[in-house]
Write a protein that binds this DNA or RNA. Structure first.
Lengths: 135, 135
DNA sequence: ATATAGAGTTACCTCATGGAAAGTAAGGGC
DNA sequence: GCCCTTACTTTCCATGAGGTAACTCTATAT
C-alpha cells in the first residue's frame, strides 16, 4: 500500500526528511529575510542589511545562501564595480512566504496573549518558590 | 494615527515583540510536541517520550514547560505514585497546531523539491571549486 | 598614489544549546 | 529491607551557533 505515489512520512521518527525543513526553519533571520523579500520583491544585499536591524554580514550571507540552496531564492550578480547583487524569491520561496505571513500574522495577533500567559506563569513559579508562610 | 486599537509592529526592528515568538519557534522539538498533542490529544510524559524518537527527558521537559508558560498547553498532575502527568493543548495551542499542520503539510509536500534544489546547488558548488581544465 | 563603494570572506572568541548519564522522590509490592 | 515505576532534575561536557572586527577584490574618481 505504500506505492500510492506519495509517501506519508512518519514525522516523529528521527530520520524523517521533513526534519531537514524543520531545522532550516529554526533560524530567526530566515523568517525575516523571507518576509523582507516577500514584501518588497527584489532587494540588494546592502538593502537587506539596512532593513534587518542587527544582522551581521556573516549571518546575512549564510541565511541567503541557505535559502538559495533550498531553491527559495535566486541570486543575481551584476558584473560591475562596485559589485551589485540582487536577491529575489523563487515561486517556491513565494509560496513559503505566504505561509510565513500567516504564521507571523498569527504571532503578532497573539503576542499579547502569550506575554500575559508568561507573566501569569512566572508569578505562579515565583509563588511556588516562596516558602509557605508560618512554617 | 497609532491609536488604532491595534499596533502594527515593525518586525524588522530588533525590539519587535513578535521576535519572542520567532525565537520560541526556533526549536525543532516544539513543533513535534505540538503536532503530537494536536493529533492525539491528551498524552502522558512517557507517551510523548516514546513517540518522539530521540528526545531526551531534559529536552522534553524544557519544551513542555516553555509551551505551558506560553499558554499553549496545560499540565495536569495526578497525585499518585508512581506519578502520572498529562499534557493537553489549550485553545491557543490548538490554533497554533492548526497553523503548524499547514506548515508541515507544505514542508512534506515540498521536501522533494527542496532536496532536489540542494543537490543541484551542491554539484554547482562542486564545479565552481573544480579548477578550470587546461589551466 | 590613494580612497571608495558593495558584497562579501576569514579568523577568532565566547556563550549557549543540547546530549549522556546519574540522581531524586514516594508509595506499594514482594 | 529492597526494588519498581514515573516523571522528572541535575551535572557535566562537547559541539556549534553566532557576534566582532579586520581583510579582500576591483574599477573608477580624485
Amino acid at each position: 500500500m505504500e506505492s500510492k505515489g506519495f509517501i506519508s512520512y512518519d514525522m516523529f521518527r528521527r530520520t524523517c526528511p521533513s526534519h531537514t525543513v524543520l531545522e532550516a526553519l529554526s533560524n530567526k533571520w530566515l523568517y525575516l529575510v523571507v518576509m523582507a523579500l516577500g514584501r518588497r520583491g527584489r532587494m540588494r544585499f546592502s538593502e537587506l542589511q539596512k532593513l534587518l536591524e542587527g544582522v551581521s554580514p556573516k549571518m546575512l550571507t549564510q541565511t541567503l545562501r541557505g535559502l538559495e540552496r533550498d531553491g527559495m531564492l535566486q541570486r543575481e550578480v551584476f558584473p560591475v564595480v562596485p559589485p551589485r547583487v540582487e536577491y529575489e524569491l523563487t515561486p517556491l520561496g513565494r509560496e513559503f512566504a505566504r505561509l510565513l505571513v500567516h504564521m507571523l500574522d498569527w504571532s503578532v495577533a497573539h503576542v499579547p496573549d502569550i506575554l500575559a500567559a508568561r507573566a501569569l506563569y512566572d508569578v505562579a513559579a515565583g509563588d511556588a518558590v516562596t516558602p509557605p508562610a508560618g512554617s
